[in-house]
Design a protein around this nucleic acid. Structure first.
Lengths: 253, 253
DNA sequence: CGACACTTTGAAGACGATCAACGCCGGTGG
DNA sequence: CCACCGGCGTTGATCGTCTTCAAAGTGTCG
């Protein structure tokens, strides 16, 4: 196999394979099958039997679910280097819990379930990497759930924008939203109208949004969020600030 | 070590060790240290450095967190045979994300982090069991988050009671709540008052609660919840029923 | 009996969802 | 070139649900 679908740099940057020798890694990788999807196609559908483990090598994949009323909630947006279905395979549950949609033309490597389990069984390092991956995803999901429960819409949006800024290495003094507002609202689990109104409130907080252009005044304490923390307010600078403001407002009234 | 803190039956029922030989299992277990806590003591505190992996062998442990306003949210209630901190150890995060409180006099085996990682590295079966454990916990947490977001308080309570009934093998035609209402409300992420009012609404739904005594009329579709599913309404019998009722009511008005 | 923890009930308020209307823009077709 | 349309986002008004604060009820245990 002369030509690979995945660039050497991308391979090296994937934590799942760290600690393996190049031979081990390439041996594992060559068992994958390369597949492509056009923008708008589904990689799999919620309720389908879980069949494969995926490693995205190009494009963007949206994971979303619809609840009984037809409302869509976006769970995640995956970019090259990220993986799908590790948890669904390890978990006893046999069906997909979400839809996976190619938001752009997408290429991914596809592996069998047995491949994933064998790799974990055979290579101790791989098993630990996989454990770490799943545990981290679980922690983030947990943190997010706590945020949803304890923060207002405006606080959630502020958190999201700060995090976006850090994770995508955007300049806080001025950047363009990488996703549509509809998608972001869905990702944050709120209605588009609520999101829109939240943006207005943020102007007073030092976050200015006009169209798709964003300016964040104070990004000082942002690292705390990214690494997670015990207290939610510690974890999110803007959360604390807004909190205090709200209390002040109540005190005035 | 003649006397063990853990009964042979309990050991055999722990999925984490399945697929290992008895020698392997006992070899692993004997590296654990037996510790006890009195009712009301903390096993560890939110923010502490993660130090150990625990296997509860007697008693009850409450995992909870407090948010910035001092509100407590109960994350889980652990009983003998269950484990603590697997995810926190595998995850890169180095501090506990919750408090662990002994709700009764409690005994647990304590293992080092290195023990857990070595066990996963050395024993393929153990690694897969651990992956399965963490993935399942993550899935349940995700399901719960979705429930929180899409169901009313009454629906959440109904789900909880049904699940309680199944998991604790209680007789739906009449059983006593194993926890205080305050604890359950905290577990469900709602205020005690909201919980109390929700119970009243459930009377019309075939779930009668008087004091700590509960009667559930229809438990027919309960298994669907336990095994999880794509659609939330599929996953929770009462959710669907209440949903329809609400829509009917709106249609009438 | 009285103290205390736990629970219930009432009334008010905050917040987000929902419905509806409108503005903005890019594309398509006449 | 213009008219029309559809997707996207904003804004206003209303409504239901949960939280909050307050008060009263229930039970147990000394």
């Amino acid at each position: 196999m002369k030509q690979s679908a995945i660039s050497p740099e991308l391979v090296k940057s994937i934590p799942l394979f760290s600690g393996l020798t190049e031979q081990e890694r390439d041996g594992l990788l060559k068992e994958g099958r390369i597949r492509s999807w056009r923008r708008g196609q589904l990689l799999f559908r919620c309720g389908d039997a879980v069949a494969c483990f995926y490693l995205v090598t190009a494009g963007v994949v949206q994971l979303y679910r619809e609840n009984p009323h037809g409302k869509q909630k976006t769970l995640d947006v995956l970019e090259p280097g990220q993986t799908l279905c590790a948890d669904e395979i390890m978990d006893a549950c046999r069906t997909h819990r979400a839809n996976a949609l190619a938001m752009e033309d997408t290429v991914a490597m596809e592996f069998t379930q047995a491949w994933l389990k064998d790799a974990a069984r055979r290579h101790g390092a791989f098993a630990l990497n996989l454990l770490s991956l799943i545990a981290q995803r679980a922690r983030l999901a947990e943190l997010e759930a706590e945020h949803q429960a304890s923060m207002s819409a405006a606080q959630l949006v502020a958190c999201f924008l700060q995090r976006l800024c850090v994770l995508h290495e955007l300049d806080p003094r001025g950047f363009t939203l990488p996703y549509s507002k509809t998608l972001i609202a869905s990702r944050l689990g709120m209605e588009l109208e609520t999101f829109s109104r939240a943006l207005a409130k943020l102007k007073e907080q030092g976050i200015t949004v006009a169209g798709t252009h964003v300016i964040i005044d104070d990004l000082t304490r942002i690292e705390r969020y990214t690494c997670g923390s015990c207290s939610v307010s510690d974890a999110c600078a803007t959360h604390g600030a807004l909190e205090k403001r709200t209390q002040d407002k109540q005190a005035r009234a």
